[in-house]
Design a protein around this nucleic acid. Structure first.
Lengths: 199, 199
DNA sequence: CGGCCGCATTGAAGTAGATTAAGAAGTAAT
DNA sequence: ATTACTTCTTAATCTACTTCAATGCGGCCG
């Protein structure tokens, strides 16, 4: 299926999990909406109920948390083919603790709470798809928690660079530091130490 | 329904998520098995494929990870009404990185991979129940990750005591230290500091 | 009963990473 | 061209936590 549509990327993503008919895809598309954002747009703020799950068609976002000391902790960065949302807020329709914002001009495909429920009703295999999605996220989160408790910052940084080379190119370093749970100054030190090592 | 059966606890758990008929419950029970373990029994070791999700009917377990330095990091402790499993290993039927063992004599209700698949097929609302379960776990894990990056050990300890008072009573302190990501010595210091504060 | 082992505590010394402060270099706005 | 803002770096001092070593103590097994 050569698919030049705006949904080709998300369709390919879905197809990796479940099999759908053409009619299913048509219905699926009817439940989506597409929006474009400028760099540094705020998609969600703490205190709001998260009304969407967003699939990044083009661009880059960060999902972060503002702690009691006023420091930002980055939960994750998303580029093309990633979903951004606060699942806890979205699925229970309660206020979020998170912020989501774009780091570049970004095109997002949105699915709303109601649309998702309609989708579950009409095409039950979506229930399975989203379960698999959450399971995968859960696994990633668990690995990250374990590495936080097991490895010093330098190794966590190397693992991050190794795992997300595309993201390292697009996200400023002070945000990567916030993801790793360290200060930008210390990340800078780690990097200069690594540089001198590799010579 | 007064239910003196061995399944009364798990049935109550299910009922909080989805509605099932008597026939559904009967089928559900037919897919389960019950086993009793002595204290310090190993239920899963890293390298094995996790073949079960286990519901704790009575007793106490820990799920932990052995890092490169040979230190154990506790992922979580389970008491009555908790599930223990390595979901990543179980759902993808690949080798686990985790260990699971009992901390007390423990009675577990097991569901196997095949039984779970049969359950999904026969009673589709289980798909939803397990999705909700994973979502909740995911939310808990995320909060823990954020607090690890935001709060010093003392506050994390207080939050743990506050959230899991029943577990604090049953789990030795050096394991709680391993959960909090600190050494037993340092936890001991935190505790003595708190004691002297509260006088 | 005694012995020993797992668990908690305490203290001294060491380290990973934070904080503060300052400056360089790139980029955007005027 | 100048200002102003963002990103990154470097260095000095500070602290939360670790490591190591010693001690105590309740529980269990011979």
């Amino acid at each position: 299926m050569s698919n030049p549509s705006i949904f080709s990327s998300i369709d390919a993503y879905i197809a990796r999990c479940i099999m759908l008919s053409e009619a299913d895809y048509a219905y699926f598309h009817s439940q989506l909406s597409v929006k474009n954002y400028k760099k540094k747009s705020r998609l969600l703020s703490a205190g709001e109920v998260c009304t969407f799950e967003g699939f990044i068609n083009k661009g880059c976002c960060r999902v972060y948390y503002l702690n009691a000391n006023g420091n930002e902790v980055d939960l994750y960065f998303g580029i093309e083919e990633w979903w951004v949302s606060d699942l806890a807020s979205f699925s229970q329709q309660k206020p979020s603790n998170l912020f989501i914002e774009t780091l570049e001009d970004t095109e997002l495909i949105f699915i709303s709470y109601e649309a998702k429920e309609r989708l579950f009703k009409k095409i039950p295999s979506f229930d399975r798809m989203f379960r698999l999605m959450v399971q995968r996220t859960h696994e990633t989160l668990m690995k990250r928690l374990l590495s936080t408790y097991s490895e010093p910052a330098e190794e966590r940084y190397l693992a991050f660079v190794n795992r997300y080379p595309a993201i390292v190119q697009r996200v400023p370093q002070h945000l990567i530091a916030a993801y790793l749970g360290i200060t930008p100054e210390f990340l800078s030190k780690i990097r200069s130490k690594l540089k001198s090592k590799n010579k």
